[in-house]
Design a protein around this nucleic acid. Structure first.
Lengths: 328, 328
DNA sequence: CTGAAAGCGCTAACAC
DNA sequence: GTGTTAGCGCTTTCAG
């Protein structure tokens, strides 16, 4: 303890926490002693005393994905601005692990948790009723008893589809996971349909292409299948960029030219989209805005400055980035 | 406290920690009470008592990069296997922030730190002499007073270059950052040269292309410049995949066909490389192996089962993944 | 402006 | 097998 060094026990605390009532000379003394002894606060002790850990948890399927790594980077940066650390939990998109993460923070490991669900379903809403701060980020569980930051699913999908229509597409594939799920697939589908309807285009079930999983490989495979099957289509709206990257690859394999024969648009505007060949048009959600909001909402809960019963639903902003894959 | 609930103060602790000396019935009692009261351990208190936090820090430039997100995912997974949590610090590749991260863990926020330096230089080796566990991952600072997990820079670069030579390349560009730095650029350059020498090929300074920064945009720009400048080359070895992705794009812009006219190979085998058009050949380092080793080394330090003075230098494994960009 | 007392919730060491 | 005694290093409260 710097106490022995300087002169006081408690005063050290005051100095460390920049309390006003400390004489300049005393402060100087203490600081000097701290430097000399290489003193560092013991955060564990402070945590115990304060009942806070200064760390929030972030549960995502994996951090090794263009989208989630972007999200994680944004969240870490936002938390950093509030002097909060972020501890990452990789759930592997498993429902089990997601539920675990929810109860983990009950161990007071974290002051609160930001959960991006991928395995949990709408049926698990009740499980979100925990007695510690939680914010849900993303679209897998909605209307739960917690604050929620959502993607602009409907409007952005509508805008992306409209863009394809404006570029002359008439037979637009909707490429996604299961359309009846409450998730990116299910929530973006209505936007796609609305855009078709807005333009007076028919909705052909053959164009609704649903996949088990939605990463690059799946996109590439399905694109090749579609090309081989004789399905007629001149546009593809993919619910995420990974899928779209795969589609570009699959279409190339099938000898179909993008954007001349088929136009492709993705969702997320992930790093690298603009360097693909052709560069990928994509919906660009306001990731930083959403991450910042998620952290703000969580802090509100942690500091109990939010109504206990009222839960905020925040929908992020977006823009459509037009690149070569839809004709520049 | 569950004490009031059950019967004991300490016994609860024993139950929680699976100590052997607890009667079955007692254990059952306690567990029942814990469940009933919704009791959770207070980790802060445990930390204070044990002098451990159960969390390690990981400092990387940013997590939003194909490479670092892969690394982070591997580390989190490896730590998880040892029941350790990982808190991520984004340094933005700034030397300042990296040095900060080094002293942060002195605050006992973490039991130890894995640092991937990008801003610090060889001159900062001394700064690694801290009194808490640190493992350096990557190639920016070498031979320091700490354990070090390194990329197989020399051998892998040599293998990648040799592969280009075997595919018939004679004028191979080395595309990197500053070659005299101790980093991925500087450490991979000798491997490139060695491969040329092995094959009896001359080393032409005009082919050593050095950049300020090494991401996709830089790769694309430089590729266009090289194409426009009339520089003759038939192969490009890029020190990372981001650069290589940019190069593919830049060459396409210049109307140069890959792999027919120029072959390209990258380094890292990042997610998505195989779906590019053309798919990208790349050095595939054993990321998981390196991450696992880094965590193991750190744990050795945390548990003080390692020699205090002897520091391990571990070099990861690798393979060369051959794809279309070098002729399949 | 500074200090003394008490306690945050847990665990190690030892006694019963 | 179980309980007692201390103490981890800080902060809050209240006196001086």
């Amino acid at each position: 303890m710097a106490k022995a060094a300087g002169v006081s026990p408690m005063t050290v605390s005051n100095v460390i926490n920049d309390h006003p009532n400390v004489r300049r000379s005393t402060r100087a003394n203490v600081l000097e002693a701290m430097a000399r002894l290489g003193y560092r606060v013991n955060v564990a002790a402070r945590n115990l005393s304060k009942g806070r850990t200064g760390t929030i948890g972030l549960a995502v399927p994996t951090v090794h994905s263009p989208y989630y790594s972007l999200l994680a980077a944004s969240i870490i940066a936002a938390a950093e601005r509030h002097s909060l650390r972020v501890s990452i939990e990789q759930t592997g998109a498993s429902r089990e692990n997601e539920l675990d993460a929810l109860s983990l923070s009950r161990n007071r490991l974290y002051d609160g948790l930001i959960l991006t669900a991928a395995g949990m379903g709408q049926a698990d809403v009740e499980r979100l009723k925990v007695d510690h701060p939680v914010v849900i980020l993303g679209d897998r569980v909605i209307g739960g008893p917690v604050d929620h930051v959502a993607m602009p699913n409907f409007e952005a999908s509508r805008a992306a589809t409209r863009h394809l229509i404006e570029r002359g597409c008439r037979r637009i594939v909707f490429l996604s996971g299961a359309v009846e799920e409450v998730d990116t697939s299910g929530l973006r589908f209505p936007g796609y349909q609305q855009a078709l309807e807005d333009a007076g285009l028919p909705s052909d079930p053959a164009l609704i292409q649903q996949l088990e999983r939605t990463d690059m490989r799946d996109g590439a495979e399905r694109a090749r299948e579609m090309a081989g099957s004789g399905l007629e289509f001149d546009g593809v709206f993919c619910v995420n960029d990974s899928l779209a990257m795969g589609v570009l690859r699959g279409l190339a394999d099938a000898g179909i030219r993008v954007p001349d024969e088929v136009k492709v648009i993705g969702f997320d505007n992930v790093a690298g989209s603009e360097f693909l060949i052709p560069s990928l048009s994509s919906v660009d959600p306001d990731h930083d805005g959403m991450a910042g909001r998620a952290v703000d909402l969580l802090i509100r809960r942690i500091e109990q400055t939010a109504p206990a019963t009222d839960h905020e639903e925040f929908v992020g902003d977006f823009s459509v980035v037009i690149r070569e894959s839809t004709g520049g």
